[in-house]
Design a protein around this nucleic acid. Sequence first.
DNA 1: CGTGTGATTGACGCCTGTCAACGTCTGTGG
DNA 2: CCACAGACGTTGACAGGCGTCAATCACACG
Lengths: 234, 234
Amino acid sequence: MKNFDDSPFCNECISNITNIFKHLNQKELDELNYIKSCNFHKRGEIIYHEGHRPTGVYCVSKGVIKLYKTGIEGKEQIIRFAKKGDIIGYRSILSNELACTTAKVIEDASICFIPSESWLSLLHNNSGFSVDMMKFVCAELGHSNSFITDIAQKNVRERLAEVLLYLKSEFGVDEQGILQISLTREELANITGTATESAIRLLSEFKDDKIIALNGRKISITNEAKLKKTANTF
Amino acid sequence: MKNFDDSPFCNECISNITNIFKHLNQKELDELNYIKSCNFHKRGEIIYHEGHRPTGVYCVSKGVIKLYKTGIEGKEQIIRFAKKGDIIGYRSILSNELACTTAKVIEDASICFIPSESWLSLLHNNSGFSVDMMKFVCAELGHSNSFITDIAQKNVRERLAEVLLYLKSEFGVDEQGILQISLTREELANITGTATESAIRLLSEFKDDKIIALNGRKISITNEAKLKKTANTF
DNA sequence: CGTGTGATTGACGCCTGTCAACGTCTGTGG
DNA sequence: CCACAGACGTTGACAGGCGTCAATCACACG
């Protein structure tokens, strides 16, 4: 019997109104629920590798995944994060290419797997779902394009400030104002597109300027206005 | 009467097997052909502006368009080019956002306009078309993600070399080996993500190293192997 | 307690952006 | 036909942002 454990039901997963599955009917949801498999993954596990051909789509029901490309001499470039409700691995399924990123768990996660045939069949048979999916991809393309301009034109200080703001909007803060995501300095550098040492130095500067507060990997934004100014967002 | 002038017929446009319209049936093609309007645009004309809300999708039947974002102090970052058979403006229609790029003609173009309602109706009613469209967007997302890694990790020399190789693969060369696209030095810099002067200096170095030959805006690649090595593509 | 990973700080120098000056070319108007 | 303006291309000088290397510290874990 499937889902005998604590596998989430797709039906519950759709509670989110913006969810990608909102156009599925009951029959499709039941089928999806039946066909999908759900697994638990610890921090550090790799869901799929860049250059491999994924056999389906992953839907994150808990935890955080980082998606990164490996560049020169193994240096990571983090492209985006995926958290509860996000799907990953869909790009290569659709464009019929090899995976262009590696997906690695950075916060213990439970992830559902949906085989490509089921996914493609849903896309072919449910145009509402298909158009929603396309909206999602288009929005992501918009982000990537902005990112290109940022990296090409802004300096490291501005980009790091922007990354911190992004992390806040994406993961939120707890009651003490601490960013609800724990990243190593190296990971912060790999999102920003800089060297680890540069990221560390700038974080210290931000701290000296009372823009942020640091306590190990716990970061809190104490002066958001100033941080926005530093990010030079227009 | 529509199309009394030299407006291309969508039917002919689909001659390309990889074309986005290959899944449309005759009725849909006829409708598209009827509803679309086709215009001629001279170099320098702007098809749509970043931040505006496009009212439809543009299909390039002749010429070249550059799509760029405007960053710090008006500096352009060229995201991609569109040429015969390519469509532009679809992203914001689909994700229901404002245009994230400006589209400017850099080689006299004739461009067909398809109103968003027609476009969206096709997507909703023809799943083959919809899935093809999604493939297209996903492929583009893959390019953008690679671009991010490149800009973040490679130096200007490597990126410029890569840009030249990209231009060759995208636009080809004539019988004398000259790149079939004419760009200003500033535009080359704006694709590479560097200052105009840096691009010029590196082009001169490439020329000195006998990797390329220069004659004004005419660029030919004389030693592709070495150029690839310079690009450090792995 | 040794080992390993991550964080921090300093020193150093190159890549690359900026500023400025000047050359080249094209189109326009007198 | 020539003069001139304006856009584009080229080159040099210069400085500083940022990457690299290396040493040291902090902390967790077996």
